[in-house]
Write a protein that binds this DNA or RNA. Structure first.
Lengths: 195, 195
DNA sequence: CTTTGAAATGAACATCTGTTCAGATATTCA
DNA sequence: TGAATATCTGAACAGATGTTCATTTCAAAG
């Protein structure tokens, strides 16, 4: 039987994930206790186990969901135009998507070492899938001689690091608008790729 | 009176720091207990307090020492030549120095949130000092019209993120030598700066 | 109004946490 | 040798940890 509409579980479950996300991002997975998460939700610690089998799975689900949604969102971006245009589309998408989800992003690459090895493998696979999207663009552009790239794998890693780095310093209401930041970074990425 | 030569404290102290560094980098500050560190040194937990007032200070000293040594090492690099040459010197220095100290680097920017606010302020100051070194090179090169940079602060952050990113994927004995990696990254950095 | 079943409590569990300190041990110096 | 000093142990502390579970609460269904 499907779950009845309006039951409590449809409300508290997401609240637990949201609270855990916020606390994990702020203090780190290992430094946050189940009781702290419960307090943030307004519930006793035992109640959390109605929504997750254990703390580790809570972290894993957060990271897996984030990466799957990231891949799904990128899949929705139209893949037309030249390699240069697609590189620009990727750069803008990456910056925008990541700036809108600082907690998810922070957790997804700060808490990798707290994953059990099976869970780690799943997350690493998803991350590699995303990297491959950029790598494919660079490879095509290189083949079409739109880019000048001595090593495609290195260029992939360099560009992703550069783009993700925005999250470490960006603050709401800062000196530059998001759009201006996207624009400047696109420029640097394009030149780094030799286009 | 200065400490006598050859006493045990000259040996165990550094061992404690080394063990803590290794464990903090591997499992994270919050996930490592004083007893684990002590076991790695081959000593009981209480003995650690002969070498550090508390766990927090142990972390702080590790980070502070790392950043001070980084700044000192960069200060030793001759600062001559054109802006392009100095940018190349910085890029090569950054990659080489960071690749040789993966644990220190990992701790220094993964464990910031575990610092008490006073300690955090000290570390942030040191980090900013280092960033300023690159920023100065970019500013001079821009003034001399050797570079083409729309925003110097953004270029600084982008280049540092790109260079530090090498540490996340580099593995000893990988496909490319360190020198080749330095070379390729120098190229991308130079082009990102519009030189 | 009664029955049902999910949601939440609150106490209990075994174990781990950072830190302290009196006492034991080992090393150095006279 | 004996005295002094540095080093380490091992137990103790008060409290926190993730997780379980019998019991209670409470809204919806019949």
């Amino acid at each position: 039987m499907a779950r009845k509409t309006g039951s409590h579980s449809d409300i508290t479950g997401p609240l637990v994930r949201k609270a855990a996300q916020h606390l994990f991002a702020r203090h780190g997975f290992a430094a946050v206790s189940m009781r702290q998460i419960a307090a943030q939700v307004g519930v006793q610690a035992g109640a959390l186990y109605l929504y997750t089998p254990d703390k580790q799975t809570l972290l894993f689900d957060l990271m897996k969901t984030h990466l799957e949604e990231l891949l799904a969102a990128w899949a929705d971006v139209p893949r037309d135009g030249s390699s240069v245009e697609r590189l620009e589309a990727f750069s803008r998408f990456h910056i925008r998507y990541h700036l809108e989800r600082p907690d998810e992003v922070f957790i997804a690459y700060m808490e990798l070492r707290n994953l059990e090895s099976e869970n780690f493998a799943v997350i690493e696979d998803l991350r590699r899938s995303y990297e491959s999207e950029l790598e494919a663009i660079l490879a095509e552009g290189h083949a079409a001689e739109e880019f000048s790239i001595p090593d495609i794998r290195l260029a992939t890693m360099a560009i992703i690091a550069m783009l993700t780095g925005v999250n470490t310093w960006y603050r709401e209401g800062g000196r530059l608008s998001r759009d201006r930041i996207e624009q400047i970074y696109c420029n640097m990425v394009r030149r780094a790729a030799g286009a």
